[in-house]
Design a binder for these strands. Sequence first.
DNA 1: TCCAACATACGAAATCTTTCGTTGACGTTA
DNA 2: TAACGTCAACGAAAGATTTCGTATGTTGGA
Lengths: 130, 130
Amino acid sequence: MADKPTPRPTDAELAILRVLWERGPSTVREVHDALSSSQETGYTTVLKLLQIMTDKGIVVRDESQRAHIYASSESEQRTQRRLIGDLMDRAFGGSPSKLVMQALSATKASADELTAIRRLLDEQIEGDAK
Amino acid sequence: MADKPTPRPTDAELAILRVLWERGPSTVREVHDALSSSQETGYTTVLKLLQIMTDKGIVVRDESQRAHIYASSESEQRTQRRLIGDLMDRAFGGSPSKLVMQALSATKASADELTAIRRLLDEQIEGDAK
DNA sequence: TCCAACATACGAAATCTTTCGTTGACGTTA
DNA sequence: TAACGTCAACGAAAGATTTCGTATGTTGGA
C-alpha cells in the first residue's frame, strides 16, 4: 500500500498553504486571521479545510496543545515544482522550454528579474556543459 | 452583462483542448479517437465535455454538418499564458521570476532547450533596454 | 424501403470541492 | 462553581466535475 504522493492542492488549499509557508507552523486562528486580510472566509471553513488537508497528507498536525498547530508537509519549493511539472504535462505537452518561454512572455518581468533569471540560466548551462 | 472571460479549463477539458490545438477543428469522433490512444474515454463522455465547453465558451461549434465540428475559441498560446498567470498568482505570490526559476530547476531541460530559452531571454532584455 | 451505423441530446449518478451551522469539550475567571 | 469564550469534530448542503446509459434523429446503402 504505497503511500500515494500528496495530491495537487485545490485553490482553497493552496491559499492556506501560502499562509503556512509565510508564517510557518500556525494555528487555525492564525491562518484564518491571515487569510481574512485578503478574503472573507469563515473560521470553521478554514478548520475544515485544514482537517481535510491533514487527511490528504498535505499538512501535518501537532495536537499536543489545545489549539492544534498545522504545518505544510512539503516545502514551498517542492510543492511549487510539482505544480509546475503538472502544468507542463497537462498544458504544454511536457515541454519545459515552451512553458518557460510562455512564462517569460506572459509576464511583465522587470529588468532586474530578467537579469536574475538570466544569471540562473547561465549557471544551468554551465552545469550542463561541464 | 459583460461576457466573462473564458474560465480556466478543467483537467478533462484541457486534454481535449490539446487535441484541438494539435489537430485543428475536429469532430467529436476525431477528438475521441485521438484521446483514446493515450487514455480510455467513452465517446459520449467526450461529446458531453465538448457540449459543456461550448456552453462555457471554451470551444466554438460549427453545426452546418451532421457531425458538428469543434474548435478551440482561444489560441493555444493565449490559453497557456492564462494558465501560467493563474498559477503565478495562486502559488507564486505573483512573482514571475520565482516561477521561471522554479520551472528551470524543476525540469531537466536539454542543452538545446536552455540555449533556446536564453535566446528568448536576450531578446526580452534587448526590448526592455530600448 | 428498411436497417445498421453513427450522430446529438438529455439526464443522472458518483465524486470532489467549498462553505458553514451546530455540538460538545475544555479552560479561565468572576 | 457557574458562565463565558475558544477550540475541534461532525454533518450536511450547494456547486463543480466527470462519466456514461439511454433516447432519438439522420443517412447511406443492401
